[in-house]
């Protein structure tokens, strides 16, 4: 069984709260990171509302809704995981993690299909056959690719961490019952989810 307490801590409660503080501080920096993209989106939307509106009609609303449902469900399974993890239920924890992993992977798969469709429709900024001929439409798609791309990258990293955590919990490689590990992973995953909750209306709904 791995040692839960790490240097320089002598008290597991204090160590837990330190770990939780650490992830909250990291999430604050993530919010600023995505904030730059949201700022750019907002500035250009204000300047080029027609182009944004026309371009948004080209995004695939159905797949966007499916993905939102998948990601919200994964957040629920993640929250479940943290909750049963605190109770020390190993099998339930592993199940919750695997469910999250499956839902997250499904999200990325759907996103991949969507990207494929987008490319087939030449929804690429600067492409000679770009279908929407309104100023600002290409800018919308520049942000569409940048924002969903960076969000997808965060999801991929999160899925990697979750996959490792499945292995670590199953084999008791880490002291997941005592430390804040699951809580930390859960908070990161929820941030990725929250970012999508903003991206979905901005890229699929508002002004459609």
């Amino acid at each position: 069984m791995p040692e839960a307490l790490h240097e320089p801590f002598h008290d597991i409660g204090k160590q837990r709260s330190a770990e939780e503080a650490g992830i909250w501080i990291f999430l604050a920096s993530e919010v600023i990171f995505f904030g730059g993209l949201f700022l750019g989106y907002a500035v250009y939307r204000l300047r080029l509302p027609e182009g944004y509106g026309a371009a948004m009609a080209e995004t695939n609303l159905t797949l966007g809704i499916v993905n939102t449902a998948l990601l919200l469900a994964s957040s629920a399974t993640m929250a479940f995981t943290v909750w049963v993890g605190r109770e020390g239920l190993q099998r339930a924890t592993v199940t919750g993690l695997i469910a999250t992993l499956a839902l997250g992977t499904a999200f990325l798969a759907v996103k991949g299909v969507e990207y494929y469709e987008d490319i087939r429709h030449h929804l690429i900024p600067g492409h000679p056959d770009f279908p929407v001929d309104v100023p600002g439409a290409e800018m919308f798609f520049s942000f569409y690719w940048a924002m969903t791309g960076l969000h997808g990258l965060h999801m991929a990293i999160g899925l990697g961490i979750i996959a490792w955590t499945v292995h670590a919990v199953r084999s008791d490689r880490i002291a997941w019952r005592e430390t804040a590990h699951l809580h930390v992973v859960g908070l990161y995953w929820n941030l990725v989810d929250v970012v999508w909750i903003f991206l979905f209306p901005l890229l699929y709904l508002v002004g459609r």
């Binding site: 250009y44 900024p125 600067g126 600002g136 520049s142 690719w145 940048a146």
Partner: peptide
């Protein structure tokens, strides 16, 4: 080649 700051695509 995303035109995030490209004036040709309306960027600033």
């Amino acid at each position: 080649a995303l035109g995030l700051f490209d004036p040709a695509q309306g960027g600033d």
